[in-house]
Design a protein around this nucleic acid. Structure first.
Lengths: 128, 128
DNA sequence: GAATTGGGTTAGATTAATCTAACTGATAAT
DNA sequence: ATTATCAGTTAGATTAATCTAACCCAATTC
């Protein structure tokens, strides 16, 4: 009865966030990030490698390919814009981030753009 | 690679929508609604029965219990408010409904309320 | 240099939600 | 009254994402 089940997008976003935060990304960092076990990450990275979204070098450091980065950056941008939108409306930072994380995959481009655009009028909504 | 996997909330909402639309609800209606097969609905209704959210009478008509209705009405209200919010922002009806459907489960009460409240200022956002 | 630790993998089990194929039972059609 | 159709179920397979237990390998530690 858990609400987990990470998607490709979740993983790529996590890789980018970890990369930004600590410079390198290992399986163990992803496991900690999501609070899942190591073999689950092995399973996930295997798929991401097969799809051509990440690479792992000899030291097992994980890097995003061009397409992987494209997806990750896109979803992370959404994440940040949505978080700002929510906090602007008075939602506290913590909750806003959690909601953004859950919603970011599911909004169509149309709705996402509409939300971002509309709320630009009422504050600086652009990701910085 | 499908994006399906309905939740309890999805099913209860569907029951209520079908009920409102055509008066009665059968397994087959739910299958058609979600475009899934009949045995999947048998599986789902079994769980919903066990959890005390629905009942099935001798004719196999499905009704919501009090708790089932409570959940269904709550999520359907969200669905409608969110759809209105999105259409108000210029998103077309079709897309707005799809997005509302995907997002309605995931927003915290705080963010949902904030969204609804803020946008009340710019139009009649209340569900009618 | 033997032992511990840290990061990763393999193998196999588990769970949830779906599917197909085959069946039952009731109603409707000829 | 047989037959066909419709709604529902059962049994068993499948898929995705997780888990545990056990192992490997490299680097530290003593």
């Amino acid at each position: 009865m858990k609400k987990s089940n990470k998607t490709t997008e979740d993983y790529l976003e996590a890789v980018l966030m970890i990369k930004e935060k600590k410079g390198i990304v290992r399986s163990v960092d992803i496991a900690e990030y999501f609070d899942i076990k190591k073999p689950s990450v092995t399973y996930a990275t295997k798929m991401l490698k097969e799809k051509g979204y990440i690479l792992m070098d000899a030291q097992n450091y994980i890097t995003l390919t061009d397409t992987g980065l494209e997806i990750a950056a896109h979803i992370l941008e959404r994440h940040r814009v949505l978080t700002k939108v929510f906090t602007m409306l008075g939602v506290d930072e913590e909750t806003a981030m959690e909601d953004a994380c859950r919603v970011e995959h599911d909004l169509s481009p149309e709705t996402y753009e509409a939300l971002a655009k509309h709320l630009e009028k009422y504050g600086s909504v652009k990701a910085e």
